[in-house]
């Protein structure tokens, strides 16, 4: 490959990463708006500020790998290939939604992309991820299961039991801890005697690294290294991504527990801004590029809203479906 080709490849890839982060950001800004307009109901947890994490990790995964996420999972679903239309329709409670309107924002599921939810019990997804990985191992499949969770989950027994089991049985799980420093209103230092999360993971005898979750390149690199090690049979891997949620925990949070100054200082490290500036500085991002990326994201959001608006409600006669298999 010539130097010029390499630069071109690098630029294409960089713009792709930026595009992915923008897709999440614009999609969720629309969600917030639609929540105010009462189109979306229930709990809505936004990922705004944390986009670099899902973006970087998803780059490292193959299409047949599995993902387990939490209630803050719109971005993860979107980048795994669940269509914006299906996600938006889900939040509208329409039967064209990715969970037929049964799940809502917190319970996005998609079999085709091996997206296993959407779990709103903190820590509840970890044992599931361990089981998916166990099945792959037993079936001799070289697949990886990526499991996302917040640092709040680290206090749950299910976290510790899952870490132990995954390590004990040498299972192909990538544990992705999104450390936003607060679990709802509880700061990490007010909930953990040991706030160094990698030490906990390491105590289960698995590789554990802390990564700047605002730097999409750092996330991508760390995730790629981890996935390669897992796929090579090295067993589970733990990555802590240090990040921050810019918005309230959910739409019902007066944010009494953190200062405006703190939020503002983290916003200075907005992953999208940081990366854009980085690219501009290196001459890899022009104004026209940005307009194009923004337009793509805007069109995707507009399509999603149109699709959700046009969707239909599941007939009431079907209420008791999906309790058992047909």
């Amino acid at each position: 490959m010539t130097t010029a080709e390499k630069t071109l490849n690098a630029q294409e890839h960089a713009l792709h990463l930026l595009q992915q982060m923008l897709r999440i950001r614009r999609f969720e800004e629309k969600c917030a708006e639609l929540y105010q307009a009462t189109k979306i109901r229930g709990f809505l947890h936004l990922y705004i500020g944390e986009e670099a994490v899902a973006t970087g990790v998803m780059e490292a995964l193959q299409p047949d790998d599995a993902v387990v996420a939490t209630y803050r999972e719109h971005g993860h679903a979107l980048l795994r290939g669940v269509s914006a239309e299906a996600i938006m329709a889900e939040m509208y409670g329409k039967q064209e939604g990715c969970s037929r309107g049964r799940g809502g924002s917190m319970h996005l599921f998609d079999k085709a992309s091996r997206f296993y939810g959407g779990n709103a019990i903190v820590g509840g997804g970890l044992p599931l991820a361990v089981g998916l990985a166990l099945a792959d191992k037993l079936r001799g499949l070289k697949r990886v299961t990526a499991c996302f969770f917040g640092e709040g989950a680290v206090a749950e027994g299910e976290f510790h039991e899952s870490m132990n089991l995954a390590a004990l049985w040498n299972l192909p799980v990538l544990f992705c801890c999104e450390n936003t420093l607060y679990a709802m209103g509880t700061a990490l230092a007010r909930s953990e005697s040991e706030t160094n999360l990698t030490i906990k993971a390491a105590s289960y005898e698995m590789p554990a690294w802390s990564v700047d979750g605002m730097d999409v390149l750092a996330v991508e690199e760390a995730a790629a290294r981890a996935v390669a090690a897992i796929r090579a049979g090295g067993g589970p891997y733990f990555l802590e991504f240090r990040t921050y949620r810019f918005r309230a925990h959910s739409m019902f949070d007066p944010e009494l527990y953190r200062s405006k100054e703190e939020v503002a200082s983290w916003k200075e490290r907005d992953p999208i801004e940081l990366f854009s500036e980085n690219l501009r500085g290196r001459g890899l991002l022009s104004d026209e590029d940005l307009v194009r990326l923004e337009q793509f994201a805007a069109e995707e959001v507009a399509r999603a809203v149109d699709f959700a608006e046009a969707g239909s409600l599941e007939p009431l006669e079907e209420l008791s479906r999906f309790v058992y298999s047909d």
Partner: peptide, 12 residues
């Protein structure tokens, strides 16, 4: 209640 896990959609 109907014997179904609680659905999200309002009408359901």
């Amino acid at each position: 209640s109907a014997e179904v896990p609680m659905p999200y959609a309002k009408h359901l």
